[in-house]
Nucleic acid binder design. Sequence first.
DNA 1: TGATCTCCGATCAATAAGGTCGGACTAAGA
DNA 2: TCTTAGTCCGACCTTATTGATCGGAGATCA
Lengths: 157, 157
Amino acid sequence: MLKFSKKADYALMALQHIAAVQVGDGAPGRVVNTKEIAEEYNIPLELLAKVLQTLAKNALIESHNGPKGGYVLARRARQITIAQILESIEGPLGITDCSHEKDGEFCMQREHCNIRTPLLKVQDSVYQLLNNMTLQDMMGGTPLIMIQSSTAQGVER
Amino acid sequence: MLKFSKKADYALMALQHIAAVQVGDGAPGRVVNTKEIAEEYNIPLELLAKVLQTLAKNALIESHNGPKGGYVLARRARQITIAQILESIEGPLGITDCSHEKDGEFCMQREHCNIRTPLLKVQDSVYQLLNNMTLQDMMGGTPLIMIQSSTAQGVER
DNA sequence: TGATCTCCGATCAATAAGGTCGGACTAAGA
DNA sequence: TCTTAGTCCGACCTTATTGATCGGAGATCA
């Protein structure tokens, strides 16, 4: 439940790897190819390729073709958020089906729906969480985020 | 992406409805049956039944059999958290596959995994969010939760 | 210019979710 | 007490999404 897809996991790993290589070398031009990442993390090569293609299409990384080709981060690591990565791979993220209703389509329960409003609030919170964390933050391993609730503290499981 | 399943949505609607009926009447003994909920929210009857069965098995609601039977909340609305509801329906919730590793099984990438630690932090935050919000909170429609981040404020999309 | 290495789009299989059906039980009413 | 109607309960099937794969097009370096 609420699990990321494999593709999303792979995307995060790959981006973290690319970012680490660039930062480590201090050379933004160093490209890293699909095979290198796939072998490092035991990811199916062709699937990872597809993931990277998608990321490139969404302008999170740049693709360099031909021999010695590969991928490079399109922006600085601190300018890429987790939310952006996930949205690139899986489309707009929303907890509920009715989050991104276009006119005409709406859920059968919309009229008497009693959970729409509170769920949208939860969704906003999750989105803030993911959009406030960047690729840069994932590198260091430092504590990042705190949550405060105005009600219902200390509910035992 | 990150979407709740239909079953989870139905569970939340049903529980909210049951809670509302009880609170509204002030009578904790008032039972509400599957059919009533299904018709109110246009939910497939048999599927909703299955959801309610699961909730009953997990002791979130009590089932009363026979004519005039139905379901009643097993506890007060403020003692039931969103996290508990979701876990009842979908099993333990975790963002990553490696969240609940039992000994022996582990993901192929575990050894060189570079995103495990930060993702577990995100997961904890989401869990806190869901576990700090109760069924009671969903009734009022009042603002509930705030998030603060220590880094990376104001990242534009 | 040739060959090799890369990215790219379309296609197929596996898993999980969504939905459905019939049976067993309980309790109220005659 | 017996009947009967209404309820919960468990197993089954269908559909949609995800995971994984294959062959082709483009570009670069020798």
